[in-house]
């Protein structure tokens, strides 16, 4: 069973981190970082997503097979977006 009961403190810490991440994303969006704006925004989003998956979705406390499933979803997403963009970026369309 899901015997692992996550301490309340952990949930509230993650919640605080997600809220702080949201505030930071908005703050950073209004600073001029050139092409880094998108990179920073996506990095913060990825960290927030990781926190949700590991703690709220209990993957941190789940079986190795659950890790493999979650990682597979991420891997195929990266392949789909990465290879598509590599294609478009090398066609000289933009």
């Amino acid at each position: 069973m899901s015997a692992h009961v996550v301490p309340l403190k952990t949930y509230f810490t993650i919640f605080g981190a997600l809220m702080a991440g949201t505030a930071l994303t908005v703050f950073v969006a209004f600073q001029d970082l050139g092409p880094m704006n998108t990179v920073v925004a996506l990095t913060i989003a990825a960290i927030k997503a990781l926190l949700v998956v590991l703690f709220f979705m209990h993957v941190k406390y789940s079986s190795r097979l659950t890790w493999v499933f979650a990682a597979a979803g991420f891997l195929w997403l990266v392949l789909m977006i990465g290879l598509t963009m590599a294609d478009f970026d090398t066609r000289g369309m933009s």
């Binding site: 994303t25 001029d32 970082l33 989003a45 927030k48 949700v52």
Partner: peptide, 13 residues
């Protein structure tokens, strides 16, 4: 979490 920055926060500066 991904939709928010990608849709709302493009080049806000």
């Amino acid at each position: 979490i991904f939709l928010f920055p990608l849709l709302y926060l493009i080049g806000r500066h």
